[in-house]
Design a protein around this nucleic acid. Structure first.
Lengths: 343, 343
DNA sequence: TTCTCTACTGTGAACGCTCACAGAAGCATG
DNA sequence: CATGCTTCTGTGAGCGTTCACAGTAGAGAA
């Protein structure tokens, strides 16, 4: 009735067809497919030729059935999706991870766990072994999902440092604290002394570490820390605007602002402009992320680049190693100061 | 040696375990799993209870091996990824499609075909039957990939109207032309008569149709079409800024601008502001998309909403229908005018 | 020659599921 | 009582792989 539904897709060749074509056995073809150990060069060649001739592609389902591996991995995103999907960082990460996995011929399954229902469904899916491992992005500091997966024995790598102490979950993160230090030293080197900070939420690792870097450099320069110079936003543009207004009210004499995300920095620029402060002449502004927003704003933002390509590559590397039996690992990658017009 | 790699993941229960637990045969369990036809209520209940007790989850690989279906679908993105990933429309679409599929318990595989190599790899993967169908996003009007997949008999739905005439590929798109008409009528109703347009590329269906709507309404209102009032960008913010500058030079007397994307509209707002024109008093600005950018700009943009949630839901519906054996279909969805501060 | 070792190859048995088929039970009809 | 029909259930086969094992051939050593 429905048939194959797809007009004329014919039955694809199996390992059996290849074996016949090459004049060898299934076993030999399988060995060639899996690294070619213990196969004579002649057989090797014959099999490869037969594969080319038949257009054979391995049936992953059959393979998975017996190996127990799925040869695919999940990219799991928990919580506020609307927000995260607007976050350019997230998009870059997703893209880079997909590409890094593609290099290993591993498909990426996108899993969004917004509601509790979705969450349950996805946890069942994962723990049933339908993916070999999970790349986890969780905004949310104290997300229990990481622990749950870890306890279920699912190989897992988290993006960003987890807040919880003592967990043995792998993670890969940029060196937020050092990035903050770089930016602060840069601002100091420009002669600025009244440096404000628009931080992210302080219940996130990013918020904690960037603030720590800020304070550390001030202290090391012999400047005192003025709490009126510090406010927090939610990483979004609007909160940056609001933060800058508060800052201007509390400390009108500021001559620089270190903003913990480029998106918030855009808001800060808008607020400063409205207040009649010139950037960078009156107030220097430094961002964080080096997202497209940094180039889109005027003046273009000096910012700290998060090495998303390296972060994703490392996440994939660590995850595959873990699937291969190695222990969880933590990787911190260096950031880079990108100087542009705003400082 | 490596074992299961994952500490203590134990062998998951199979259909056999469930059958034993429920005191029925494998066949009966399978029938319950697949719709429950020809199963007595008693058996039905016993099986469901056993599934709950054992925590059974179907092994999709085993199922796929015999059904020939993979029960997963691919989300394929061809070309300029950097650009597309910055495009909020694309992100919303990806999110909505993932959710729409999740409702059917179908995982989404993200496939990025940037380079020729990736393209070949992905085509092989798809045509080998590793996905049941493909949701295609192609910026690029004359992309051969749609035709290739269609010819290979792969169920396929494209997002946005394809340019090529005569192809029988399914697609789902917003009614660009009607959206443009709505915006133009709105601008006319405000008394504006010198209305400029910053269009997208005219070799894309969106560019063609939005321009057609623009011209149609002007003609219908008895106004003549002034080519100096029409420029094209590339959907991006920067090109909107440039476009507005050209427009101001060519037709300084304009009193409104219809911009074919919100991102470009942001640029237009910036250019107008720099030129000392007040929005909306001197010049009214209308965007297109209703992306987050529309709310982030000041003044907030009046724009045409693309119903991304409905578009993705329809794409999924049409694709699943096609996989089920139905014929390709084309769906055009209505847009909606969202009035905000910029008009 | 005979034995051992290495390099290679083929074979049957799984993996967990679905599907076709054969049957059993219940009930109405001839 | 046989016959048909419907509704339900169990059974074997097989999907395309990999894996363990058994086996072969050839080289070198005794």
């Amino acid at each position: 009735m429905t048939m194959n539904a797809a007009g004329g897709r014919r039955r694809p060749p199996t390992i059996h067809d290849v074996a016949r074509e090459a004049g060898v056995s299934r076993g030999t073809v399988s060995r060639v497919l899996n690294g070619g150990h213990y196969v004579s060069p002649a057989a090797q060649e014959a099999v490869n030729a037969a594969i080319r001739r038949t257009g054979y592609v391995v049936n992953r389902h059959a393979r998975s059935l017996i190996t127990g591996r799925s040869d695919s991995i999940g990219f799991l995103l928990t919580e506020p999706q609307e927000k995260l999907f607007e976050d350019p960082n997230f998009n870059v990460l997703l893209r880079c991870c997909t590409q890094a996995l593609a290099a290993h011929d591993i498909p990426l399954l996108l899993m969004l766990a917004g509601t509790q229902d979705e969450r349950r469904r996805i946890m069942r899916y994962i723990t049933a072994g339908h993916v070999d491992g999970v790349l986890l992005v969780s905004s949310h500091s104290a997300d229990p999902v990481a622990e749950q997966l870890h306890e279920a024995g699912v190989p897992l790598v988290q993006c960003g440092k987890p807040m919880g102490r003592g967990t043995k979950v792998s993670y890969v993160a940029a060196d937020d604290r050092d990035g903050a230090r770089d930016m602060m030293r840069h601002l100091l080197s420009l002669g600025r002394r009244r440096i404000g900070m628009v931080n992210g939420p302080v219940d996130t690792p990013g918020g904690v570490d960037r603030l720590a870097g800020y304070k550390e450099v001030l202290t090391e320069a012999g400047l005192e820390i003025d709490e009126r110079l510090i406010v927090s936003g939610d990483w979004g543009r609007a909160s940056g605007e609001a933060g800058a207004e508060r800052l201007l009210a509390q400390a009108p004499d500021l001559d620089a602002v270190f903003v913990a995300s480029d998106l918030m920095a855009q808001g800060v620029l808008a607020a400063l402009q409205r207040a009649g402060r010139r950037v960078p002449q009156d107030v220097a502004v430094g961002g964080f992320d080096d997202s497209p927003a940094a180039l889109a704003s005027s003046p273009e933002l000096t910012t700290i680049r998060q090495p998303w390509d390296r972060i994703s590559a490392e996440m994939v590397r660590v995850l595959l190693a873990q699937i291969g039996g190695e222990d969880p690992a933590a990787v911190i990658l260096p950031t880079e100061l990108v100087k542009r017009e705003s400082t």
